[in-house]
Design a protein around this nucleic acid. Sequence first.
DNA 1: ACGACTAATACTCACATTGAGGTTAAGTGG
DNA 2: CCACTTAACCTCAATGTGAGTATTAGTCGT
Lengths: 368, 368
Amino acid sequence: MQLWLDAVIMAVTADRPRVLTVLRGADGRPPAEALADSEREPAAPPLHGPLDALPFGPLDVAGDRTLEGGLRRHVRQQTGLELGYVEQLYTFGDALRDPAQADGGPRVVSAAYLALVREERPVAGDARWRDVYAFLPWEDHRVGRPSILDERIAPAATAWAAGAQGVGAPRPRDARGDAMAEHGERRERADIAFGFGTARWDDERVLARYELLYELALVAERARDDGAPAPPMDPPRAESLAEPGRGRKDDADAGRAMALDHRRILATALGRVRAKIKYRPLVFELVPPEFTLRTLQHTVEALAGMRLHTPNFRRLVDRGGLVEGTGHFEQATGGRPAERFRFRREVLRERRAPGVGLPTSGSARRPN
Amino acid sequence: MQLWLDAVIMAVTADRPRVLTVLRGADGRPPAEALADSEREPAAPPLHGPLDALPFGPLDVAGDRTLEGGLRRHVRQQTGLELGYVEQLYTFGDALRDPAQADGGPRVVSAAYLALVREERPVAGDARWRDVYAFLPWEDHRVGRPSILDERIAPAATAWAAGAQGVGAPRPRDARGDAMAEHGERRERADIAFGFGTARWDDERVLARYELLYELALVAERARDDGAPAPPMDPPRAESLAEPGRGRKDDADAGRAMALDHRRILATALGRVRAKIKYRPLVFELVPPEFTLRTLQHTVEALAGMRLHTPNFRRLVDRGGLVEGTGHFEQATGGRPAERFRFRREVLRERRAPGVGLPTSGSARRPN
DNA sequence: ACGACTAATACTCACATTGAGGTTAAGTGG
DNA sequence: CCACTTAACCTCAATGTGAGTATTAGTCGT
């Protein structure tokens, strides 16, 4: 058995959440020629070719005293980055995660970690920063609800719910109407995950959404894992990241694929960040030591994928004791100069859950 | 490398949080004679002898398709229990966790899981239910702040903070006064963990408190791991559980030890439960399908280790849509009959964080 | 210099939530 | 039938939250 250590390294740059990736084959193996191939034929549908992967590597049972230490080592070696804030995310151990295992390869279990940094230098090797929402485009609601939700996902979910047979373990219920119950459960699950019907969009259910899309076969990984020839969606365009992307255009597809189950891990990480930012002062790992409230708000908004009411955000963070003014002012780019603030470490003693609470009702996105 | 699967199986019975344990040596090895020994000499200080351990076992890389499946299998085999609600807790991989590893044994990583059940039959083999607060007595504040906090822990913490040298990694600060800064950090850490000084008691910081007690050498595991001869505390009394325990008497010692690092895992589990109960309807895994609001409240109080304001709890849970009346009534034991309620599953669709929120300020324990 | 524009900050207000207290209702046991 | 016990209900003040509006202090263009 082998233990792999996977790193989801996130930053927020220019109001976009970013993740550090390396290039790997779909099976996770590092083909030396991967980089070169990718540069030569960027238009080839990258289903099995070089894909974005999270930095990862095996635990060195002799050398690594701690799992986190081993993770830092791998990240250092693969990307040249020295991590600061790191926390454990989840340990993935399903036998079917890795196609190679089906061929009798060794059993692999992955311990995934989340790290928050500030984006720096165009890091070493084949490491590069990617927009998180290139992989999870349905998660960004800052300029409105992405059209893919109602145009492509909703119909697919409806068909999936309607097509429910009495398959799977029937619940201990009345024998009559098992299919109906199954139908209702599927409908309910989709509604809750994506905020269809009367249900509200919950920014934290990132993993539930990805898993449902996998089940609906709307993400490329599903086709790949099934060994199917073509994905039931537009192949992710190799350089959609480079284009600024006008409005909701990028939503047309179900996001860029990643190697192995790394996109699922990324979804887990985003969900964790969105949840934890509300009760722990995580944001401050992502902004410089001194920052304007605008920067802070935009950073939170980038992660949450929704916009906030500015005066309320200020009240929360300032009156709530999370930050204090420094007396220094930003030279404005076209408006009143903003004061720079710093994190008040003392808040950890005073407040129980010192986070930047997003609207609890979930509906309180800023009218836009 | 070997992956172990550890199970923290919790229940709440007679208003006491319980955990399912098996008997093992301090090194985790299952001595066949452990049970017999324990029965014969219950007074022997159980530092290396048979100790309470969490049910655990290795992942079967060939047979277990999922980690959770492997866990359920081990629990079934060792305790005869079929688990319901299960979630992953944390993966522990430090090289020094297991004394055996120091002797060149194989590297062991443990994936710990939390399961919530209703306590049943006096389960199979050497499995038995134990009070959680026998291991973590400083966590139960239902009948007041445990005296051990201010009588034994506070002085030890003060000495520890005062004795801070400039050891450890000095922070990037002014060179002058590193020892002072270190002192302040230790003081701050202890204050926040235990609610000393102006800091408030935070029920969720269970792990932080256990780790600090380990550092203060107030728990027996520390002495054991150091290879020291005697623990700097009263040896845990073997049958303190059997005694009803009058008032705060049990707080005199720093709790019963467990095998390996299982007490740390238990602390992690309790912290997780306390946090999650506030935003997920976990409690309902611990009570029968129909229950009185009194039972529900006592169950929450048992886990949180603090008492709640009854009318407010009722308002939260009833008006908040978490439960609905059944029209059935409990035959009273000496008072007005209470209606039995059931969990309203629909709440998952309606509310974003359907938990039984404890007082957010933390100070709102019921005046007692 | 001045007015349009932009961004930062301040103020207001209705409403929901929360912590804490008291009051009434419906049983049991002497 | 009266004392006691527990359930269920109601009230109230304080605080927090969502949302809208106003003022301040700069930049930029003419």
